Amino acid sequence: MPGPHEPQSGRPSHDPHRGRPSRDAKSGQPTLRDVAERAGVSAMTASRVLRDDPQVLPATRERVRAAAAALGYRPNEVARSLRLGRGTGLVGLVVTNLANPFYSRLALGVDSVVGEHHLKTVIGNTGQDLDAERELVADLVARRVDGIIAVPAGADQRHLATAVADGVPVVLASRPPEGFAADCVLVDDFGGARAATTRLLERGHRRIGFLGSPPAVHTGTERLRGYAAALASAGLTVDARLVRQGQTEPRQATRAAAGLLALPEPPTALFCSNNRNTIGAFRALRDAGAGGTDGTHVALAGFDDFELADALGLPLTLVAYDSDELGRAAGRLLADRLHGRAAAGEPRHIVVPTSLVEYGM
């Protein structure tokens, strides 16, 4: 029997406005009512068809689906999910610098995993600005994202703790939680930096400069700690005159490296705490003529392997790790939280291992 709002004849009832849908005033898109009018059924029946209600007559289903296809109608999945008491199907990914290729690999890793769970990734860039991060996280929570994966800009993470308290699962990547419990995925920053600095020491270098990100950044702090530990193991102390921190872009690193090379007693090697600093240091060495194989050569090592590192034309030691796996691991941790597979109150920490790769040796 037809539903109470379906026409009895099996043919669409006459509607003088059929074919001339009144678009939604805000979005300009056809509405469910437009589909219903074109198919000659009630809005309730059209809704039942579009949510695959098996009790609707086959002929009616065909008419409604044909009308929806003809009009280019797309259901508002966010509104529908909220009405059904589900999430929006969106995961927020908060990063500090989209210009850094590391974050594009991280995002690809996250998206590959959450996509398997029929979730979409929304990426927001904070520019290493804590206020921008607070605003972005608050906006994601207000938009009812299912979860958030964040690379925090600093140690003040109260806004992320608030998101967790509001019922939004949060996973941190690259930096650990501060002041609240959350799952996180880290790189072996300390171990990788210590290994790269040790390799420079093994080659006879004793004046090794350090180029790093801002002191508030966890990765930079841990990599400076690894650098210092390697020096200590060789009976050396950190010379503050050889340390430059705060560079987030290659041009800043170029200036910092040039300053080190201009010292009365310049370093014979440089260790850089991320790929942006390594690229900047390479440019400074090239400009100073210190990247050759003669007596002016300054050895270069850095954290993060990067594309075309093998084409720079100088000996280069890099700390490598799978940045895609960092994202995949964060995505798996979040999926476990969303599907209730992780024990409440028991945060999990994963550390991605590192290795050394060498070019032009």
Score class of each variant (00 low, 15 high):
Thr31Asn: 10
Pro152Ser: 12
Ala335Leu: 06
Ala301Tyr: 06
Asp305His: 11
Gly192Leu: 05
Ala99Lys: 12
Thr60Pro: 04
Ala335Gly: 05
Pro12Ile: 10
Val137Ile: 14
Gly92Leu: 07
Leu130Glu: 15
Glu77Tyr: 00
Ala234Cys: 05
Ala256Asp: 12
Pro16Asp: 12
Phe282Glu: 11
Ala195Cys: 03
Ser323Asp: 14
Val110Asp: 09
Gln8Val: 12
Arg11Met: 03
Leu312Gln: 05
Asp324Thr: 13
Val64Ala: 05
Arg337His: 03
Thr296Phe: 02
Gly19Lys: 02
Leu261Gly: 06
Gln157Val: 08
Phe180Trp: 14
Pro250Met: 02
Gly147Ser: 06
Tyr103Ala: 03
Ala155Gly: 12
Met44Asn: 11
Gln157Leu: 09
Cys184Gln: 00
Ala281Glu: 06
Thr268Ala: 03
Gly291His: 15
Arg332Met: 07
Arg83Cys: 08
Ser323His: 08
Gly360Tyr: 06
Thr197Cys: 13
Ala181Val: 06
Ala344Lys: 03
Gly292Phe: 09
Leu263Val: 00
Met1Asp: 13
Gly85Asp: 07
Gly109Pro: 10
Arg80Gln: 13
Gly302Asn: 08
Gly313Glu: 13
Ala299Leu: 06
Arg348Trp: 01
Gly295Lys: 11
Ala299Asn: 08
Asp239Arg: 11
Arg255Thr: 15
Thr317Ile: 10
Ala181Pro: 00
His118Gly: 03
Ala193Ser: 14
Pro101Lys: 09
Val187Ala: 04
Ala288Trp: 08
Arg143Glu: 02
Leu308Glu: 14
Phe210Trp: 09
Ala25Arg: 14
Leu98Lys: 05
Arg341Ala: 15
Ser42Tyr: 07
Arg194Lys: 15
Ala25Gln: 13
Gly19Met: 11
Arg244Leu: 09
Thr237Ser: 15
Ala284Trp: 05
Arg203Asp: 12
Arg144Ala: 10
Glu116His: 13
Glu346Leu: 03
Ala153Ser: 15
Gly280Val: 02
Gly167Tyr: 03
Val185Thr: 04
Leu71Ala: 08
Pro75Val: 01
Gly10Arg: 14
Ala257Tyr: 09
Ala173Pro: 01
Gly220Ile: 01
Glu222Lys: 14
Thr96Pro: 10
Leu108Pro: 00
Ser213Val: 13
Asp336Gln: 12
Arg74Gln: 15
Leu236Pro: 01
Leu211Asn: 04
Phe180Ser: 11
His297Thr: 10
Val94Asp: 02
His297Pro: 01
Tyr73Val: 04
Tyr103Val: 04
His5Cys: 00
Tyr321Asp: 00
Asp305Trp: 03
Asn125Val: 01
Ala232Phe: 02
Asp53Ala: 12
Arg65Gly: 04
Arg175Pro: 02
Asp310Glu: 14
Gly87Tyr: 05
Thr88Gly: 00
Gly340Lys: 05
Asp310Met: 12
Ala344Asn: 01
Ala46Ser: 09
Ala269Trp: 08
Arg23Glu: 07
Val170Tyr: 02
Val352Trp: 01
Ala182Lys: 02
Gly92Cys: 08
Arg328Met: 04
Ala281Lys: 10
Ala153Pro: 06
Leu90Tyr: 12
Arg158Lys: 13
Gly204Ile: 02
Arg276Trp: 08
Leu186Cys: 07
Ile350Gln: 13
Leu260Val: 09
Leu186Phe: 09
Pro177Glu: 05
Val35Arg: 08
Ser42Gln: 11
Pro4Ile: 09
Leu338Cys: 11
Thr221Glu: 13
Ala253Asn: 08
Lys26Trp: 01
Arg255Gln: 13
Ala240Thr: 14
Asp239Leu: 09
